[in-house]
Design a protein around this nucleic acid. Structure first.
Lengths: 227, 227
DNA sequence: TTCATGCTTTGACCGTAGCCGAAGCACGCG
DNA sequence: CGCGTGCTTCGGCTACGGTCAAAGCATGAA
């Protein structure tokens, strides 16, 4: 017994409904203030404050003071990955009676996962990138190929600063709605930023959903060579 | 709020120390009786019984009656994957003061992850398989190539029954100690079985650790063409 | 300085959930 | 059949943890 790390500690941290709501809200990748998170979780400011302190002590979130606000965010992609996989279990093993509403439909299509794109569009993209040899996979996550480097440079992404930074360029992340992987890492983040800058899609305010315009969706498909 | 599935429900399920211990014990892949799990969790039989009922209602474990015993096991690899990723977070973000003992060291080297091999040896194997083209990766997890099929057949694994079964042949699973992927799925399971049948390694009783014999380790490396 | 806003701490309340002992089933065996 | 073992249900205890109101600190603005 006691083999392996103390998994109950952080599972319990996620296991409270108020805290789970906060973490889910933070999955949008945006840093949120304590009051916003309190509203999101449906609790009073004091309660939220206590929860946030626990989450921080547990290492799941971090804070950044700015002016008289306190911005909270997830500490990293690893936390986001755990949350995503938990959502996969909950949506699968949970009560299926709650059939997906229109809002869930949009989330399934495309959404923000911490800082990169997730959902149907994202797994389609990841598959296309691997099929066309822009990415290759080692045991240690995906790797950018030479043709891939040219491909993304042509899309307007400056790769050098990303490579110079110590954060991993490519990562894969399991999608709870699709049950397949999609692209994460600093490259995944850059792609999402570029898609938004291009005007192909925009985030719905107050939600994780990403809405593609019809023209944006067509351009996205053409870029990747999707059917 | 309420975007996405009810993650708090199952996180809370894992969040109790007694239940977490039970789940960790079940990560060995073996089906255990209620009394064994009670001992593992350090609680009385009545308490264990209550916990097991909750875990089953939550869809995390299933039971199989056999004689006058009741055998419990995890419901699937998806549950195991969540537990592994939670261990990754807990070992990283958790208190690092608990430096790894000799027992942890063995676990890091090679262990059972639900029904397949995990740890250093497993990620090395996965990397070698991808490097040599026995496996290729699509967006939808790894795929067995033709050369890979010949490779595993030559190792004494009958692929047809695995392919005929509806369970996925290849899956990847994130390793909490290595933070890299390793091979799961029915093929992963078959490989571990073959390794044990070959006498290369054996499971330590009452633990998840897998101990390779010196000769077994050498044979394993030669088989994969590791340095 | 003085006020207002954003957040945290304190203190008290309450509910829930874990825990066990004892009794109750259920199954298998002799 | 009746005994023993394995597991579950029941009752009641305890305590941990979530919750909010009110007061206490900060920080920035006037």
């Amino acid at each position: 017994m006691k083999a392996g790390p103390d998994i109950a500690r952080i599972a319990a941290l996620i296991g409270d409904p108020a805290r789970a709501n906060m973490l889910t809200a933070l999955m949008s990748g945006k840093a949120l203030t304590a009051s916003e998170l309190a509203a999101e979780a449906g609790v009073s400011p004091p309660t939220a404050s206590g929860h946030l302190a626990k989450l921080e002590a547990g290492g799941l979130i971090g804070q950044r003071r700015q002016g008289r606000h306190r911005y909270f965010s997830l500490t990293g992609t690893e936390v986001a990955a755990v949350l995503e996989s938990l959502m996969g279990l909950a949506s699968g093993a949970g009560h299926l009676r709650t059939r997906p509403g229109p809002r869930d439909e949009a989330l399934r299509r495309a959404r923000v996962c911490y800082n990169h794109l997730a959902g149907e569009m994202a797994t389609a993209m990841y598959g296309a990138l691997l099929r066309t040899g822009r990415l290759a996979t080692t045991g240690d996550g995906p790797r950018l190929t030479e043709s891939g480097a040219a491909f993304f440079s042509g899309f307007g992404i400056a790769l050098e600063p990303l490579i110079r930074a110590r954060a991993p360029l490519c990562r894969e992340c399991l999608d709870w709605s699709e049950r397949r992987s999609h692209l994460a890492g600093s490259l995944g983040r850059a792609v999402l930023a570029r898609i938004e800058a291009e005007g192909w899609a925009s985030r719905e305010p107050g939600s994780r959903a990403v809405r593609f315009t019809p023209r944006g969706e067509a351009a996205f498909g053409a870029w990747l060579g999707l059917g």
